[in-house]
Design a binder for these strands. Sequence first.
DNA 1: GCTCATACTTACATTCGTGTATGTACCTGG
DNA 2: CCAGGTACATACACGAATGTAAGTATGAGC
Lengths: 117, 117
Amino acid sequence: MKETKKRTFTCGLDAAIAVMGGKWKGLILFALQDGPLRFGELRRAVPGISERVLILQLREMETTGLLHREVYHQVPPKVEYSLTPFGHSLNTAMAPLGEWGEEHLERIETIPWDQTG
Amino acid sequence: MKETKKRTFTCGLDAAIAVMGGKWKGLILFALQDGPLRFGELRRAVPGISERVLILQLREMETTGLLHREVYHQVPPKVEYSLTPFGHSLNTAMAPLGEWGEEHLERIETIPWDQTG
DNA sequence: GCTCATACTTACATTCGTGTATGTACCTGG
DNA sequence: CCAGGTACATACACGAATGTAAGTATGAGC
């Protein structure tokens, strides 16, 4: 999802995928939908993600304007991440996709992913 | 999007992203929503995709059950791709995402993608 | 016999995404 | 003085995803 130039998109879906694409961003958005979370809380809320990748994703999403980063100058440090209105709107737009996934979860899990290459 | 083992998902959104993830599958689904297309037509309908990548994506989507491949034994060869009901349902679920992208297209295009790394 | 068109296949190269392991800064508490 | 906790940064590496370029098969038409 990293680009060296200003992108142009063929359609809205293309643009949306560029913003929420990748394995984690959708899950991060969903984790934050009920309110702000600290870095450590987010890491626990998104099982399987590594610290490094989580940071990279958060940075990207901050740059794209999906979320807000609030630093509290304390020791030990405290940083809270929350959705911007932009992020909320994307979350709303992704909701049907999440429902679709849940509806067809069984079918999706039985897909022979190792035969797709 | 290729996996060596049977996957399990943390939520529906995770599963949905695994199915429609990547740069192209969403666009291919959208291109096919109005009816079947031949390989060459699809290539023109999805600007920027290479033949090889298009084939790989189509193979994957056939395996996941999103689309159907119909071969006509002619010369020159003719192959038509069409959405299955499963593919149609995913397409419907992605529609709000496409609308969101179009609504915010200007904002998305001005995102400094090269500063996200 | 040569070219054309379509729908691929194959070989190779490159970039991207993701992951592991380790180090850093800061103050607190023992 | 040393360990602990938080939120990172940095170095390194692997495999997946994507791309480029070329070749294949078939029969039609000239």
